[in-house]
Simulated assay, not measured.
Amino acid sequence: MRAAVFRRPGPAAEVLEVVDVPAPEPGAGQVRVRMVTSGVNPTDWKGRAGLTSRRPDGFQVPHHDGAGVVDALGPTVAGLAVGQRVWVYLAAYRNRYGTAAEYAVVPAARVVPLPDSASDDLGACLGVPALTAAHCLGGVPGALEGRTVLVAGGAGAVGHYAIQLAARAGARVAATVSSAEKQALAEKAGAAHVVRYTDGDAADRILELAGPVDRVVEVAPMANLDLDLRVLAPGGTIATYAADETLTLPGGPLMSANATLVFALLYTLTPEQTDAAVRWTSQALAAGALTALPVTTYPLERVAQAQDAVERGTVGKVVVRL
C-alpha cells in the first residue's frame, strides 16, 4: 500500500515521505479500514515534529482521524461488517498504522459506523476535535439543557463541534472569535451569540447577550482566564483542552466563584469517558446535527504540505484524500 511515513522527528518536508509498505493484517480485536480521507490535527504535526515523548518504532504512519470502509476484521471483532462505512479516531495512538495511508489497522473500539448521510470529509473531521468537545462539555448532553455555554475560539475545530453539540443538547451558546471571517463560521455552526474577543468590552458584551456562563470550553486558558472569570456563574466550570503553557491561577477569584477548572486530554480519558464522548458524537451525527468546517484538501503525495498548513493555523480543516 501507499503510505506516508516518518522514521524520526523533524520538519515535515525533511522527515515525511510517501512510500510502498506491506498492507497490515488485522489481529485479534482489530479492524483494517481502506482509508478514503485522513484528517489532520495539531496533535499530528506536533507528534511528527518531536514535541511529544513518543518516537517512531521503525516507522510511523501519521494521523489519528479519518473515514473509510471496513476491509477486513480480526478475530473476536463484532458489530462491524466488511464494506461498512466508518470513521476512526486515535488511529495512530500507540499504533504504527495511522490514517495517512491506503489502509489502516485500528483497534475495533476506535472504529465507528459512519451514516450514509455523512460525507467522508465530515467523517475525517470528527475524531479528536468532536470527542474533545463532547468531553469538555461534560460528556452528558442532558446536563446542558437550559444552561449557558461559552466556547472560546468558536471557529476552530473543537470550538465548531462544541457549539453544535451544546446547541443540540439545549444549551444557550455564545462564542468568542478574533475576526469577521471566524464570526461567520461560528454563527453558521449555530452559536446564538458571537463576540470578538479583540473588542475591549468582550466580557460585558457576553454578559449582556447571554448572561452568566455555566460552562466554558477554553482553548487559551491563560490569555482568557480574566474574561472567563468575569462571565462565569457561581459554581461554573472552565474546561480547557489546550494548556501547554505554565498556568498561574488567581486563587481568590476562583474560590469566590466556586469554580471548577477541568483539563482535558483525549489520550488519557477512561474507557467510560471515551465511550460517552463517542456516543454523544454518534447520536448528533446520526441526527444531522454535525457539519464539517470548510475543508482544504491535499493528495497523499503532499502530506507534508498538509501538515504545514495545519501548523500555520489554516482556518477550517485540512484533509488528505486517499
Rank of each mutant, 00 (worst) to 15 (best):
L137R: 06
G138T: 07
G138L: 08
G139I: 08
P141D: 09
G142S: 12
G142D: 15
G142C: 00
A143C: 06
A143S: 14
L144Y: 10
E145M: 01
R147W: 10
V149N: 11
V149Y: 14
L150V: 10
A152I: 08
A155T: 00
G156Q: 01
G156L: 03
A157G: 06
A157W: 02
H160W: 12
H160I: 04
Y161N: 03
Y161Q: 05
A166K: 06
A169K: 07
A169D: 12
A169N: 10
R172C: 08
R172T: 15
V173Y: 09
A174K: 01
A174F: 07
A174D: 03
A175M: 04
S179E: 02
S179D: 02
A180M: 01
A180Q: 03
Q183N: 00
A184K: 03
A184Y: 00
A186D: 01
E187A: 13
K188S: 05
K188F: 00
G190I: 02
G190V: 02
H193M: 07
V194W: 05
R196G: 08
Y197S: 13
D199T: 11
G200I: 02
G200N: 03
D201M: 00
A203Q: 12
D204L: 11
D204C: 05
R205P: 06
E208Q: 14
L209K: 10
L209G: 02
A210G: 11
V213F: 09
V216M: 05
V217C: 10
E218N: 07
V219H: 08
V219R: 02
V219K: 02
A220I: 01
P221R: 13
P221M: 14
M222V: 14
L225D: 10
D226P: 04
D226L: 05
L227A: 06
L227T: 10
L227Y: 06
D228E: 15
R230S: 15
L232Q: 08
A233K: 03
A233P: 04
P234S: 15
G235F: 06
G236W: 12
G236C: 12
I238D: 11
T240A: 15
D244E: 12
D244L: 14
E245A: 15
T246M: 10
L247A: 13
T248Y: 06
P253N: 09
P253F: 08
L254C: 11
L254A: 14
M255C: 10
S256Y: 11
